[in-house]
Design a binder for these strands. Sequence first.
RNA 1: GCUCCGGUAGUGUAGUCCGGCCAAUCAUGUCGGCCUUUCGAGCCGAUGACUCGGGUUCGAAUCCCGGCCGGAGCACCA
Length: 500
Amino acid sequence: MSLEEQKVELSKLGVQESKKEKKTQKKGLADLPRVDGEVVLRFAPNPSGPLHIGHARAACLNQEYVKHYGGKLILRVEDTDPRRVDPEAYQMIPEDLKWLKVDWQEEVIQSDRIKIYHQYAEELIGLGQAYMCTCPGDEFKTLKDRCQACPCRDQSPEENLELWKKMPEMREGEAVLRVKTDLNHKNPAIRDWVAMRIVEKEHPRIGDDFKVYPMMNFSVAVDDHLMGVTHVLRGKDHLANSEKQKYLYQHFSWKIPEFIHYGRLKMEDIALSTSQARKGIEDGVYQGWDDPRLGTIRAIARRGIMQEAIQELMLEIGVKIADSTVSWKKIYGLNRNLLEDKSNRYFAVLNPVKVEIQGLPESLKGNIERLKHPDYPDGGVRELPFDGVVYLDQEDLENNRSKVLRLMDAVNIFIGDEVTYHSASLEEARKSDARIVHWVPSSSNYQVELVMPDARISNGLIEPASHEIKVGDVVQLERVGFARLDSIKDDKLTFYYAHK
RNA sequence: GCUCCGGUAGUGUAGUCCGGCCAAUCAUGUCGGCCUUUCGAGCCGAUGACUCGGGUUCGAAUCCCGGCCGGAGCACCA
Protein backbone atom coordinates (compact mmCIF):
# COMPACT_ATOMS: atom_id res chain seq x y z
CA MET A 1 0.00 0.00 0.00
CA SER A 2 1.39 3.36 -0.93
CA LEU A 3 1.63 6.17 1.55
CA GLU A 4 -1.27 7.94 -0.11
CA GLU A 5 -3.43 4.83 -0.01
CA GLN A 6 -2.60 4.39 3.65
CA LYS A 7 -3.65 7.93 4.39
CA VAL A 8 -6.92 7.37 2.62
CA GLU A 9 -7.53 4.17 4.56
CA LEU A 10 -6.65 5.83 7.82
CA SER A 11 -8.97 8.72 7.26
CA LYS A 12 -11.72 6.26 6.41
CA LEU A 13 -11.18 4.78 9.84
CA GLY A 14 -11.32 8.23 11.33
CA VAL A 15 -7.67 8.32 12.37
CA GLN A 16 -6.13 11.77 12.31
CA GLU A 17 -2.63 12.15 11.06
CA SER A 18 -0.48 13.32 13.93
CA LYS A 19 1.56 16.26 12.81
CA LYS A 20 5.12 16.08 13.90
CA GLU A 21 6.53 19.47 13.30
CA LYS A 22 9.98 19.48 11.89
CA LYS A 23 12.29 22.25 12.74
CA THR A 24 11.83 25.00 10.23
CA GLN A 25 15.03 25.37 8.34
CA LYS A 26 16.50 28.78 7.92
CA LYS A 27 19.03 29.55 5.31
CA GLY A 28 22.58 30.24 6.25
CA LEU A 29 24.37 29.21 9.38
CA ALA A 30 23.10 26.48 11.63
CA ASP A 31 21.73 27.67 14.94
CA LEU A 32 23.91 27.54 17.99
CA PRO A 33 22.65 25.12 20.61
CA ARG A 34 20.93 26.41 23.73
CA VAL A 35 21.11 30.11 23.16
CA ASP A 36 19.61 32.09 26.00
CA GLY A 37 19.41 35.72 25.00
CA GLU A 38 22.70 37.19 23.90
CA VAL A 39 25.86 35.26 23.32
CA VAL A 40 29.44 35.85 24.40
CA LEU A 41 31.96 34.37 22.03
CA ARG A 42 35.67 34.59 21.72
CA PHE A 43 38.32 34.28 19.10
CA ALA A 44 41.46 33.04 20.79
CA PRO A 45 44.53 32.67 18.60
CA ASN A 46 48.01 31.75 19.68
CA PRO A 47 50.36 34.55 18.64
CA SER A 48 52.72 32.38 16.67
CA GLY A 49 52.31 34.21 13.39
CA PRO A 50 49.74 35.96 11.25
CA LEU A 51 46.28 34.51 10.78
CA HIS A 52 45.69 31.92 8.12
CA ILE A 53 42.62 30.66 6.32
CA GLY A 54 41.83 28.28 9.17
CA HIS A 55 41.70 31.16 11.65
CA ALA A 56 39.47 33.02 9.24
CA ARG A 57 36.88 30.33 9.68
CA ALA A 58 36.75 30.69 13.45
CA ALA A 59 36.88 34.47 13.27
CA CYS A 60 34.17 34.84 10.63
CA LEU A 61 31.84 32.36 12.24
CA ASN A 62 32.19 33.89 15.68
CA GLN A 63 31.59 37.29 14.19
CA GLU A 64 28.53 36.09 12.32
CA TYR A 65 26.97 34.47 15.37
CA VAL A 66 27.48 37.57 17.48
CA LYS A 67 25.85 39.59 14.75
CA HIS A 68 22.98 37.14 14.57
CA TYR A 69 22.22 36.72 18.26
CA GLY A 70 23.59 39.93 19.66
CA GLY A 71 26.21 39.93 22.38
CA LYS A 72 29.91 40.37 22.15
CA LEU A 73 33.06 38.98 20.69
CA ILE A 74 36.23 38.85 22.71
CA LEU A 75 39.65 38.75 21.12
CA ARG A 76 41.88 36.81 23.44
CA VAL A 77 45.51 36.32 22.61
CA GLU A 78 46.74 33.06 24.09
CA ASP A 79 50.40 33.52 24.78
CA THR A 80 50.97 31.32 27.81
CA ASP A 81 53.87 29.49 26.26
CA PRO A 82 56.80 31.90 26.06
CA ARG A 83 58.49 29.65 23.56
CA ARG A 84 55.70 29.85 21.07
CA VAL A 85 55.28 33.56 20.84
CA ASP A 86 56.15 35.63 17.83
CA PRO A 87 56.18 39.24 19.08
CA GLU A 88 55.09 40.49 15.67
CA ALA A 89 51.94 38.43 15.87
CA TYR A 90 50.47 40.85 18.42
CA GLN A 91 50.22 43.38 15.62
CA MET A 92 49.54 41.03 12.76
CA ILE A 93 46.52 39.38 14.31
CA PRO A 94 44.44 42.56 14.72
CA GLU A 95 45.52 43.66 11.25
CA ASP A 96 44.30 40.43 9.74
CA LEU A 97 41.04 40.59 11.67
CA LYS A 98 40.42 44.09 10.43
CA TRP A 99 40.96 42.96 6.89
CA LEU A 100 38.41 40.22 7.57
CA LYS A 101 36.05 42.92 8.87
CA VAL A 102 35.77 41.12 12.18
CA ASP A 103 34.99 43.44 15.09
CA TRP A 104 35.64 42.59 18.68
CA GLN A 105 34.29 44.41 21.69
CA GLU A 106 36.85 43.29 24.21
CA GLU A 107 40.49 42.40 23.96
CA VAL A 108 42.66 40.54 26.43
CA ILE A 109 46.11 39.14 26.36
CA GLN A 110 46.63 36.17 28.59
CA SER A 111 50.15 37.07 29.60
CA ASP A 112 48.58 40.04 31.42
CA ARG A 113 46.59 37.61 33.52
CA ILE A 114 49.15 35.15 34.83
CA LYS A 115 48.42 36.18 38.42
CA ILE A 116 44.76 35.38 37.95
CA TYR A 117 45.64 31.89 36.84
CA HIS A 118 47.89 31.49 39.86
CA GLN A 119 45.02 32.49 42.13
CA TYR A 120 42.69 29.95 40.63
CA ALA A 121 45.37 27.28 40.73
CA GLU A 122 45.77 27.91 44.42
CA GLU A 123 42.04 27.79 44.93
CA LEU A 124 41.85 24.51 43.12
CA ILE A 125 44.54 23.08 45.37
CA GLY A 126 42.50 24.27 48.34
CA LEU A 127 39.52 22.41 46.98
CA GLY A 128 41.61 19.27 46.91
CA GLN A 129 41.15 18.99 43.16
CA ALA A 130 44.71 19.62 42.09
CA TYR A 131 48.05 18.35 43.28
CA MET A 132 51.68 19.10 42.83
CA CYS A 133 53.32 16.28 40.95
CA THR A 134 57.07 15.81 41.05
CA CYS A 135 57.15 12.53 39.20
CA PRO A 136 59.32 12.35 36.13
CA GLY A 137 57.12 12.58 33.08
CA ASP A 138 57.73 9.09 31.79
CA GLU A 139 57.02 7.52 35.19
CA PHE A 140 53.77 9.38 35.46
CA LYS A 141 52.82 8.29 31.97
CA THR A 142 53.46 4.65 32.78
CA LEU A 143 51.22 4.85 35.82
CA LYS A 144 48.61 6.86 34.03
CA ASP A 145 48.43 4.36 31.19
CA ARG A 146 47.68 1.70 33.80
CA CYS A 147 45.01 3.84 35.45
CA GLN A 148 47.15 4.12 38.53
CA ALA A 149 47.64 7.13 40.75
CA CYS A 150 51.10 8.53 41.22
CA PRO A 151 52.36 8.96 44.81
CA CYS A 152 51.80 12.71 44.69
CA ARG A 153 48.09 12.35 44.20
CA ASP A 154 47.46 11.56 47.86
CA GLN A 155 49.17 14.63 49.24
CA SER A 156 46.99 16.85 51.39
CA PRO A 157 45.99 20.30 50.18
CA GLU A 158 48.41 21.74 52.74
CA GLU A 159 51.32 19.74 51.39
CA ASN A 160 50.37 20.71 47.89
CA LEU A 161 50.09 24.34 48.81
CA GLU A 162 53.53 24.26 50.33
CA LEU A 163 55.01 22.75 47.19
CA TRP A 164 53.06 25.21 45.09
CA LYS A 165 54.65 28.11 46.95
CA LYS A 166 58.07 26.65 46.22
CA MET A 167 57.31 26.12 42.57
CA PRO A 168 58.86 29.40 41.37
CA GLU A 169 62.19 28.33 42.86
CA MET A 170 62.16 24.94 41.20
CA ARG A 171 63.72 24.12 37.88
CA GLU A 172 61.81 23.47 34.71
CA GLY A 173 60.48 19.93 34.67
CA GLU A 174 60.82 19.37 38.40
CA ALA A 175 57.15 19.76 39.17
CA VAL A 176 53.78 20.40 37.64
CA LEU A 177 50.34 21.08 39.01
CA ARG A 178 47.86 18.44 37.96
CA VAL A 179 44.09 18.61 37.88
CA LYS A 180 42.37 15.57 39.29
CA THR A 181 40.07 13.99 36.74
CA ASP A 182 39.21 10.32 36.48
CA LEU A 183 42.09 7.87 36.44
CA ASN A 184 39.82 5.34 34.83
CA HIS A 185 38.79 7.60 32.03
CA LYS A 186 38.98 5.56 28.87
CA ASN A 187 40.99 8.21 27.15
CA PRO A 188 44.37 8.30 28.89
CA ALA A 189 44.89 11.85 27.70
CA ILE A 190 42.15 13.04 29.98
CA ARG A 191 43.60 11.51 33.14
CA ASP A 192 44.99 14.07 35.61
CA TRP A 193 46.15 16.62 33.10
CA VAL A 194 48.69 19.35 33.72
CA ALA A 195 47.41 22.77 34.76
CA MET A 196 50.59 24.67 35.55
CA ARG A 197 54.21 24.12 34.67
CA ILE A 198 57.55 25.83 34.98
CA VAL A 199 59.01 27.56 31.93
CA GLU A 200 62.50 28.95 32.20
CA LYS A 201 62.37 31.20 29.24
CA GLU A 202 61.88 34.91 29.07
CA HIS A 203 58.44 35.78 27.78
CA PRO A 204 58.77 38.06 24.75
CA ARG A 205 56.08 40.32 26.07
CA ILE A 206 56.24 40.25 29.87
CA GLY A 207 59.86 39.30 30.39
CA ASP A 208 60.81 37.05 33.28
CA ASP A 209 58.23 38.14 35.83
CA PHE A 210 56.94 34.60 35.98
CA LYS A 211 58.30 31.11 35.83
CA VAL A 212 55.08 29.28 36.51
CA TYR A 213 52.80 29.38 33.50
CA PRO A 214 49.37 27.89 33.03
CA MET A 215 48.75 25.29 30.39
CA MET A 216 46.31 26.27 27.71
CA ASN A 217 43.57 24.05 29.13
CA PHE A 218 43.74 25.81 32.45
CA SER A 219 43.92 29.41 31.32
CA VAL A 220 41.31 28.89 28.64
CA ALA A 221 38.77 27.44 31.03
CA VAL A 222 39.41 30.08 33.69
CA ASP A 223 39.10 32.86 31.15
CA ASP A 224 36.06 31.47 29.40
CA HIS A 225 34.35 31.32 32.76
CA LEU A 226 35.49 34.71 33.99
CA MET A 227 34.51 36.37 30.74
CA GLY A 228 31.12 34.73 30.63
CA VAL A 229 31.71 32.95 27.35
CA THR A 230 28.52 31.11 26.40
CA HIS A 231 29.63 29.18 23.34
CA VAL A 232 33.07 27.98 22.39
CA LEU A 233 33.74 27.39 18.71
CA ARG A 234 36.91 25.43 18.21
CA GLY A 235 38.48 22.90 15.90
CA LYS A 236 37.94 19.23 16.49
CA ASP A 237 41.57 18.92 17.46
CA HIS A 238 40.33 20.36 20.75
CA LEU A 239 37.79 17.63 21.35
CA ALA A 240 39.85 16.07 24.12
CA ASN A 241 40.66 19.49 25.54
CA SER A 242 37.00 20.33 25.85
CA GLU A 243 36.58 17.22 27.88
CA LYS A 244 39.58 18.01 30.05
CA GLN A 245 38.20 21.46 30.69
CA LYS A 246 34.84 20.11 31.76
CA TYR A 247 36.52 18.64 34.85
CA LEU A 248 37.75 22.05 35.82
CA TYR A 249 34.31 23.56 35.44
CA GLN A 250 32.93 20.83 37.65
CA HIS A 251 35.59 21.28 40.32
CA PHE A 252 34.81 24.97 40.55
CA SER A 253 31.06 24.37 40.13
CA TRP A 254 31.02 26.63 37.12
CA LYS A 255 28.51 26.51 34.32
CA ILE A 256 29.97 24.72 31.33
CA PRO A 257 29.74 26.64 28.06
CA GLU A 258 28.53 24.99 24.88
CA PHE A 259 31.43 23.53 22.96
CA ILE A 260 31.09 23.36 19.21
CA HIS A 261 33.81 21.62 17.24
CA TYR A 262 34.39 22.06 13.56
CA GLY A 263 36.51 19.94 11.24
CA ARG A 264 39.87 20.61 9.70
CA LEU A 265 40.05 23.00 6.82
CA LYS A 266 42.51 22.07 4.16
CA MET A 267 43.39 24.23 1.29
CA GLU A 268 44.07 22.86 -2.14
CA ASP A 269 47.78 22.96 -2.93
CA ILE A 270 48.59 24.59 0.39
CA ALA A 271 49.65 22.23 3.12
CA LEU A 272 51.56 24.77 5.10
CA SER A 273 51.32 25.22 8.80
CA THR A 274 52.49 28.44 10.40
CA SER A 275 55.69 26.76 11.49
CA GLN A 276 56.41 25.40 8.02
CA ALA A 277 55.70 28.78 6.52
CA ARG A 278 58.03 30.39 9.01
CA LYS A 279 60.77 27.98 8.11
CA GLY A 280 60.25 28.68 4.43
CA ILE A 281 60.52 32.38 5.07
CA GLU A 282 63.67 31.96 7.13
CA ASP A 283 65.19 29.76 4.45
CA GLY A 284 64.37 32.32 1.79
CA VAL A 285 61.96 30.07 -0.08
CA TYR A 286 59.13 32.51 0.56
CA GLN A 287 59.44 36.27 0.45
CA GLY A 288 57.42 36.80 3.61
CA TRP A 289 54.13 36.08 5.32
CA ASP A 290 52.30 37.46 2.31
CA ASP A 291 54.03 35.32 -0.26
CA PRO A 292 51.33 34.31 -2.76
CA ARG A 293 52.02 30.64 -2.19
CA LEU A 294 51.03 30.79 1.47
CA GLY A 295 47.62 30.33 3.00
CA THR A 296 47.83 33.36 5.26
CA ILE A 297 45.14 35.99 5.23
CA ARG A 298 47.63 38.58 4.10
CA ALA A 299 48.81 36.43 1.21
CA ILE A 300 45.25 35.85 0.08
CA ALA A 301 44.47 39.54 0.40
CA ARG A 302 47.53 40.42 -1.59
CA ARG A 303 46.34 38.19 -4.38
CA GLY A 304 43.25 40.28 -4.81
CA ILE A 305 40.82 38.01 -3.03
CA MET A 306 38.09 40.13 -1.46
CA GLN A 307 37.16 39.87 2.17
CA GLU A 308 33.56 39.20 1.16
CA ALA A 309 34.61 36.13 -0.81
CA ILE A 310 36.31 34.65 2.24
CA GLN A 311 33.36 35.59 4.40
CA GLU A 312 30.89 33.92 2.05
CA LEU A 313 33.06 30.86 1.85
CA MET A 314 33.34 30.50 5.61
CA LEU A 315 29.63 30.94 6.11
CA GLU A 316 28.99 28.27 3.56
CA ILE A 317 31.41 25.84 5.13
CA GLY A 318 29.91 26.51 8.53
CA VAL A 319 30.66 24.51 11.65
CA LYS A 320 30.30 20.89 10.66
CA ILE A 321 32.74 18.48 12.17
CA ALA A 322 33.68 16.69 8.96
CA ASP A 323 36.86 17.97 7.35
CA SER A 324 36.67 19.98 4.19
CA THR A 325 39.02 20.95 1.44
CA VAL A 326 38.63 24.38 -0.04
CA SER A 327 39.31 24.59 -3.74
CA TRP A 328 40.77 27.72 -5.24
CA LYS A 329 38.21 27.48 -8.02
CA LYS A 330 35.50 27.97 -5.46
CA ILE A 331 37.22 31.03 -4.05
CA TYR A 332 37.89 32.39 -7.53
CA GLY A 333 34.29 31.90 -8.50
CA LEU A 334 33.00 33.77 -5.48
CA ASN A 335 35.60 36.44 -5.94
CA ARG A 336 34.87 36.91 -9.62
CA ASN A 337 31.23 37.54 -8.81
CA LEU A 338 32.34 40.37 -6.55
CA LEU A 339 34.98 41.78 -8.85
CA GLU A 340 33.18 41.64 -12.16
CA ASP A 341 31.03 44.68 -11.53
CA LYS A 342 33.57 46.91 -9.93
CA SER A 343 36.83 46.23 -11.67
CA ASN A 344 37.93 48.62 -14.35
CA ARG A 345 39.48 47.19 -17.47
CA TYR A 346 42.94 47.86 -18.82
CA PHE A 347 45.17 46.47 -21.53
CA ALA A 348 48.34 44.79 -20.45
CA VAL A 349 50.44 42.80 -22.90
CA LEU A 350 52.68 40.10 -21.55
CA ASN A 351 55.56 38.90 -23.70
CA PRO A 352 55.17 42.02 -25.82
CA VAL A 353 56.32 42.14 -29.40
CA LYS A 354 56.61 45.50 -31.14
CA VAL A 355 54.61 45.67 -34.34
CA GLU A 356 54.63 48.40 -36.99
CA ILE A 357 51.51 48.34 -39.05
CA GLN A 358 52.41 48.94 -42.69
CA GLY A 359 50.13 51.01 -44.83
CA LEU A 360 48.01 52.42 -42.05
CA PRO A 361 45.96 55.36 -43.36
CA GLU A 362 46.97 58.55 -41.61
CA SER A 363 43.32 59.28 -40.90
CA LEU A 364 43.03 56.32 -38.57
CA LYS A 365 45.73 57.52 -36.23
CA GLY A 366 44.74 59.33 -33.10
CA ASN A 367 43.41 58.74 -29.63
CA ILE A 368 41.21 55.78 -29.08
CA GLU A 369 38.71 55.71 -26.27
CA ARG A 370 37.53 52.59 -24.58
CA LEU A 371 35.14 52.13 -21.69
CA LYS A 372 36.73 51.37 -18.37
CA HIS A 373 33.92 48.93 -17.81
CA PRO A 374 31.97 47.51 -20.73
CA ASP A 375 28.70 47.33 -18.77
CA TYR A 376 28.89 50.75 -17.13
CA PRO A 377 29.38 53.62 -19.57
CA ASP A 378 29.07 56.09 -16.70
CA GLY A 379 32.36 54.80 -15.38
CA GLY A 380 34.17 56.76 -18.06
CA VAL A 381 36.76 55.93 -20.65
CA ARG A 382 40.48 55.49 -20.95
CA GLU A 383 42.48 56.89 -23.83
CA LEU A 384 45.01 55.01 -25.89
CA PRO A 385 47.12 56.90 -28.41
CA PHE A 386 47.23 54.94 -31.65
CA ASP A 387 49.88 55.72 -34.26
CA GLY A 388 50.29 52.38 -35.92
CA VAL A 389 53.07 51.11 -33.74
CA VAL A 390 51.83 48.80 -31.00
CA TYR A 391 52.86 45.97 -28.73
CA LEU A 392 51.04 42.68 -29.10
CA ASP A 393 51.26 39.48 -27.15
CA GLN A 394 53.69 37.13 -28.79
CA GLU A 395 51.18 34.34 -28.47
CA ASP A 396 48.49 36.28 -30.29
CA LEU A 397 50.88 36.87 -33.16
CA GLU A 398 51.98 33.27 -33.38
CA ASN A 399 48.47 31.91 -33.22
CA ASN A 400 47.33 34.17 -36.06
CA ARG A 401 49.98 33.79 -38.71
CA SER A 402 48.45 34.55 -42.12
CA LYS A 403 45.26 35.65 -40.47
CA VAL A 404 43.43 38.86 -39.82
CA LEU A 405 43.59 40.18 -36.29
CA ARG A 406 41.52 43.01 -34.84
CA LEU A 407 43.05 45.38 -32.37
CA MET A 408 40.25 46.27 -30.01
CA ASP A 409 38.57 49.55 -30.86
CA ALA A 410 41.27 50.24 -33.47
CA VAL A 411 41.92 48.54 -36.78
CA ASN A 412 42.22 45.16 -38.42
CA ILE A 413 45.63 43.95 -39.43
CA PHE A 414 47.01 41.06 -41.40
CA ILE A 415 49.83 39.00 -39.96
CA GLY A 416 52.06 38.08 -42.85
CA ASP A 417 55.84 38.39 -43.19
CA GLU A 418 55.08 41.92 -42.34
CA VAL A 419 52.13 43.20 -40.44
CA THR A 420 49.93 45.19 -42.76
CA TYR A 421 46.83 47.27 -42.48
CA HIS A 422 43.77 45.29 -43.51
CA SER A 423 40.64 47.28 -42.76
CA ALA A 424 39.06 49.46 -40.15
CA SER A 425 35.60 48.31 -39.31
CA LEU A 426 34.42 45.69 -36.90
CA GLU A 427 32.26 44.26 -39.68
CA GLU A 428 35.36 43.60 -41.74
CA ALA A 429 36.93 41.85 -38.82
CA ARG A 430 33.87 39.67 -38.40
CA LYS A 431 33.89 38.85 -42.09
CA SER A 432 37.48 37.70 -41.80
CA ASP A 433 36.72 35.80 -38.65
CA ALA A 434 39.38 37.80 -36.93
CA ARG A 435 40.38 37.27 -33.36
CA ILE A 436 39.93 40.46 -31.36
CA VAL A 437 42.90 41.25 -29.19
CA HIS A 438 44.17 43.83 -26.76
CA TRP A 439 47.24 45.93 -27.44
CA VAL A 440 49.46 48.58 -25.88
CA PRO A 441 50.62 51.71 -27.70
CA SER A 442 54.35 51.83 -28.25
CA SER A 443 54.45 55.57 -27.85
CA SER A 444 53.02 55.56 -24.36
CA ASN A 445 53.04 52.77 -21.81
CA TYR A 446 54.41 51.59 -18.52
CA GLN A 447 56.27 48.49 -17.62
CA VAL A 448 54.25 45.89 -15.82
CA GLU A 449 55.12 42.90 -13.73
CA LEU A 450 52.56 40.26 -12.92
CA VAL A 451 53.20 38.01 -9.95
CA MET A 452 51.42 34.70 -10.38
CA PRO A 453 49.98 32.54 -7.58
CA ASP A 454 53.03 30.30 -7.78
CA ALA A 455 55.24 33.39 -7.39
CA ARG A 456 56.52 33.27 -10.94
CA ILE A 457 56.70 36.62 -12.62
CA SER A 458 55.53 37.64 -16.08
CA ASN A 459 56.75 40.89 -17.54
CA GLY A 460 55.14 43.13 -20.06
CA LEU A 461 53.70 46.53 -20.82
CA ILE A 462 50.50 48.22 -19.76
CA GLU A 463 48.49 51.05 -21.28
CA PRO A 464 49.12 54.61 -20.08
CA ALA A 465 45.78 55.06 -18.33
CA SER A 466 46.97 52.51 -15.80
CA HIS A 467 48.62 55.36 -13.93
CA GLU A 468 45.23 56.11 -12.40
CA ILE A 469 45.02 52.71 -10.70
CA LYS A 470 45.67 52.95 -6.99
CA VAL A 471 47.73 50.47 -5.06
CA GLY A 472 45.34 47.91 -3.66
CA ASP A 473 42.82 48.22 -6.48
CA VAL A 474 41.83 45.11 -8.30
CA VAL A 475 41.36 45.57 -12.02
CA GLN A 476 40.79 43.30 -14.94
CA LEU A 477 43.60 43.11 -17.44
CA GLU A 478 41.53 42.29 -20.47
CA ARG A 479 41.95 38.74 -21.70
CA VAL A 480 44.52 38.14 -18.97
CA GLY A 481 42.52 38.14 -15.79
CA PHE A 482 41.86 39.98 -12.56
CA ALA A 483 44.86 41.37 -10.77
CA ARG A 484 45.57 43.59 -7.80
CA LEU A 485 47.98 46.50 -8.06
CA ASP A 486 50.56 45.79 -5.41
CA SER A 487 53.13 48.53 -5.90
CA ILE A 488 54.43 51.19 -8.24
CA LYS A 489 58.13 51.75 -8.57
CA ASP A 490 59.45 54.29 -11.02
CA ASP A 491 57.70 53.40 -14.25
CA LYS A 492 56.87 49.87 -13.31
CA LEU A 493 53.58 48.61 -11.92
CA THR A 494 53.56 45.34 -10.06
CA PHE A 495 50.33 43.39 -10.01
CA TYR A 496 49.43 40.19 -8.21
CA TYR A 497 47.35 37.91 -10.34
CA ALA A 498 44.08 36.73 -8.85
CA HIS A 499 42.35 34.59 -11.44
CA LYS A 500 40.67 34.67 -14.84
C1' G B 1 48.35 0.36 19.01
C1' C B 2 44.61 2.91 22.17
C1' U B 3 40.43 6.65 22.55
C1' C B 4 37.03 9.40 19.84
C1' C B 5 34.84 11.23 15.41
C1' G B 6 33.47 11.50 10.37
C1' G B 7 32.08 9.79 4.95
C1' U B 8 25.86 13.54 0.14
C1' A B 9 28.06 15.35 -7.43
C1' G B 10 35.15 17.59 -9.09
C1' U B 11 34.89 20.94 -4.59
C1' G B 12 31.84 23.17 -0.77
C1' U B 13 26.98 22.74 1.24
C1' A B 14 21.31 21.63 2.54
C1' G B 15 18.58 17.45 4.11
C1' U B 16 20.30 13.02 8.84
C1' C B 17 18.54 14.55 15.46
C1' C B 18 12.28 13.51 14.77
C1' G B 19 12.21 7.60 8.27
C1' G B 20 7.60 9.10 3.70
C1' C B 21 6.73 16.00 0.75
C1' C B 22 14.38 13.49 -1.58
C1' A B 23 14.13 10.03 -8.76
C1' A B 24 18.01 14.71 -3.00
C1' U B 25 19.06 21.78 -2.25
C1' C B 26 22.08 25.70 -3.40
C1' A B 27 26.91 27.55 -4.68
C1' U B 28 31.31 26.93 -7.40
C1' G B 29 33.44 24.20 -11.29
C1' U B 30 33.13 21.51 -15.95
C1' C B 31 30.86 20.82 -20.95
C1' G B 32 27.58 22.59 -24.96
C1' G B 33 24.73 26.63 -27.38
C1' C B 34 23.45 31.90 -27.78
C1' C B 35 25.31 36.66 -27.02
C1' U B 36 29.43 39.99 -26.48
C1' U B 37 34.93 44.53 -30.04
C1' U B 38 38.07 40.47 -23.45
C1' C B 39 39.61 34.19 -23.30
C1' G B 40 35.46 38.44 -18.29
C1' A B 41 30.23 39.01 -17.69
C1' G B 42 25.21 37.72 -19.17
C1' C B 43 21.37 34.19 -21.06
C1' C B 44 19.83 29.00 -22.12
C1' G B 45 20.84 23.97 -21.54
C1' A B 46 23.59 19.79 -19.78
C1' U B 47 26.61 17.13 -16.42
C1' G B 48 27.21 14.92 -11.88
C1' A B 49 26.36 12.43 -5.28
C1' C B 50 23.61 9.66 -0.61
C1' U B 51 31.19 4.92 1.01
C1' C B 52 29.90 -0.56 0.76
C1' G B 53 27.21 -4.87 2.69
C1' G B 54 23.56 -6.66 5.79
C1' G B 55 19.32 -5.69 9.11
C1' U B 56 14.66 -3.15 10.98
C1' U B 57 10.34 -1.16 8.26
C1' C B 58 4.84 -0.94 3.97
C1' G B 59 8.89 2.70 3.18
C1' A B 60 15.97 4.21 4.72
C1' A B 61 20.54 9.55 2.66
C1' U B 62 17.97 9.47 7.47
C1' C B 63 17.48 4.12 12.50
C1' C B 64 20.74 -0.55 13.93
C1' C B 65 25.12 -3.87 13.04
C1' G B 66 29.54 -4.87 10.33
C1' G B 67 33.29 -3.75 6.60
C1' C B 68 36.05 -0.08 3.87
C1' C B 69 38.10 4.71 3.64
C1' G B 70 39.39 9.24 6.01
C1' G B 71 40.44 12.48 10.21
C1' A B 72 41.65 14.09 15.22
C1' G B 73 43.72 13.19 19.92
C1' C B 74 46.93 10.07 22.90
C1' A B 75 52.62 16.84 25.42
C1' C B 76 55.24 20.03 31.26
C1' C B 77 52.09 23.32 22.54
C1' A B 78 47.94 26.09 21.47
